[in-house]
């Protein structure tokens, strides 16, 4: 409740939440909201400018761009959420173990993750998709894998500070085992930064998905993904900019909404701002 009250003061974050709510709604009810079948080709009206029949125009195969953008919301949100869940789960556990047990556990886990960390994320994701073959699942997992070190680092750092707290020692003094302290006492106290980073991470994941699809190693035609649509529209950029413009705008809005939401959460959770 306290958290909600402080979050509410952050007007940008509230805008973000509303935009996200709309996006999620659009994603879930895409079949009902899309005016046309996104795969239906109309060769009579290819690359037509926005009109009443096609509010965003049509693509080079005469498919309704609005319907394709609406269906693309699903892909972006799925990839964004899915990859962050994978990354936060794996990275969270890795960071928890590394931070809590320290010493050689820490060294082994963190050095392995440093190797992953050393590659530019989009490039590594690209390589992974190339190996596993492009599909929704592999895109989610490869983006998830490249984001793991980020979560592990943040969780590890939080664990390092939490595990020195008196209440951890007090729990040990009352006979509770180390492993149960790790999950019942340490974990709940590090969730806040993890959730904030995860929210901001969704935006990054959506960007990487767009990059992968743009480069042809993400979602495959005829699926509708924003990144793929920008890529396909690239050829017609001079003559028909709407093709790339609308999916590009959608990526921008979505990324902005997640970032605003994440910022708001971070500020609401930051104890230093509590006094305000």
């Amino acid at each position: 409740m306290e958290l909600y009250r402080r979050f509410k003061k952050h007007s940008m974050a509230m805008v973000g939440v509303i935009v996200l709510a709309v996006l999620v709604f659009v994603g879930i009810f895409a079949p009902f909201l899309a005016p046309k079948d996104p795969y239906q080709m109309e060769f009579g009206s290819t690359l037509s400018a926005p009109s009443l029949a096609h509010p965003m125009g049509t693509d080079h195969l005469g498919r309704d761009l609005l319907s394709r953008v609406i269906y693309g919301t699903r892909v972006s949100l799925l990839v964004g959420l899915g990859s962050v869940i994978v990354a936060a789960f794996v990275g969270g556990l890795a960071g928890l173990f590394a931070g809590y047990f320290g010493r050689f556990v820490d060294i082994i886990i963190m050095r392995i993750l440093d190797v992953v960390w050393a590659f530019p994320p989009a490039l590594l994701a690209l390589a992974l998709v190339a190996v596993w073959g492009p599909s929704l699942t592999t895109v989610i997992f490869s983006i998830g894998v490249v984001s793991v070190p980020q979560y592990a680092r943040i969780v590890r750092a939080s664990v390092l500070s939490v595990k020195e707290k008196d209440y951890i020692l007090a729990a040990r003094a009352s006979g509770i085992s180390r492993s149960s302290i790790m999950f019942t006492h340490v974990l709940p106290n590090i969730l806040a930064p993890l959730i904030v980073v995860a929210t901001l991470g969704i935006a990054t994941s959506i960007m990487i998905e767009a990059i992968l699809s743009f480069l042809g190693l993400g979602m495959q035609p005829p699926a509708s993904s924003w990144g793929l649509m920008i890529s396909e529209g690239q050829k017609y950029l001079r003559t028909f900019p709407y093709y790339s413009l609308f999916p590009g705008l959608m990526i921008m809005i979505t990324v902005f909404a997640f970032n605003a939401f994440g910022d708001g959460l971070r500020d609401a959770w930051d104890p230093k701002l509590k006094t305000q």
């Binding site: 008196d166 209440y167 729990a171 009352s174 709940p188 106290n189």
Partner: peptide
Amino acid sequence: MRSIRGKKISMIFQEPSTSMNPSF
């Protein structure tokens, strides 16, 4: 040793406010 801690020997700490987990 774990069954001794808390059961046979307990401990009270200096700072009560930091010796309780704030999340529970």
